[in-house]
């Protein structure tokens, strides 16, 4: 039934977000929200179709963003993840990373890997932002 379908789509979304390796706590937050939503849908059937549609939309959107990130991640050579990331970006997250990315000025002789690592950092931030926005919307519905 719809509850079982929602359970499966929730687990799939959590698994995808987990495998993306986003900021600590993201998967836990999403998992708690979806579990809460599942119980609310069990009590009030007006929730289940709305939530299930949202979960499917989130999964579809996230699939696209994650694929784009994976496509970039395989390009740097040799494979030393993050080793070519400019020092001004290391350890930054969220708004700080966004501002540093926008302000970033690379030297004209920057290597291919540096550009690829910067592109990957921007894509990974877009992935985190996408998940965060979807979590924000779920929170407004569930709580």
């Amino acid at each position: 039934g719809p509850m079982a379908a929602m359970c499966v789509s929730s687990q799939r979304l959590c698994q995808m977000v987990h495998s993306a390796g986003l900021r600590h706590g993201t998967v836990d937050r999403l998992h708690t929200l979806l579990a809460t939503g599942w119980w609310m849908a069990a009590i009030d059937s007006s929730y289940d179709s709305q939530l299930d549609q949202m979960i499917v939309r989130s999964t579809n959107r996230f699939t696209v963003v994650k694929k784009l990130a994976n496509d970039i991640a395989v390009l740097p050579q040799p494979a030393h993840p993050g080793s070519s990331l400019p020092a001004t970006l290391i350890g930054l997250h969220g708004q700080n990373l966004f501002e540093a990315l926008v302000a970033l000025r690379l030297l004209a002789d920057a290597t291919k890997n540096v550009h690829l690592e910067v592109a990957l950092a921007a894509r990974r931030l877009a992935m985190q932002e996408t998940v965060d926005l979807h979590i924000h919307v779920y929170e407004r519905i569930v709580y």
């Binding site: 990315l101 690379l106 291919k112 550009h115 910067v118 592109a119």
Partner: peptide
């Protein structure tokens, strides 16, 4: 709402940055 608008603006800016650096990566 404001959160969604800010999100789409940042996403557009990030997409542009990705494009720019992928282009530069192919040039070196």
């Amino acid at each position: 709402n404001a959160t969604t608008l800010a999100f789409f603006r940042r996403l557009e800016a990030l997409d542009a940055l990705v494009e720019k650096h992928l282009d530069l990566a192919t040039q070196v």
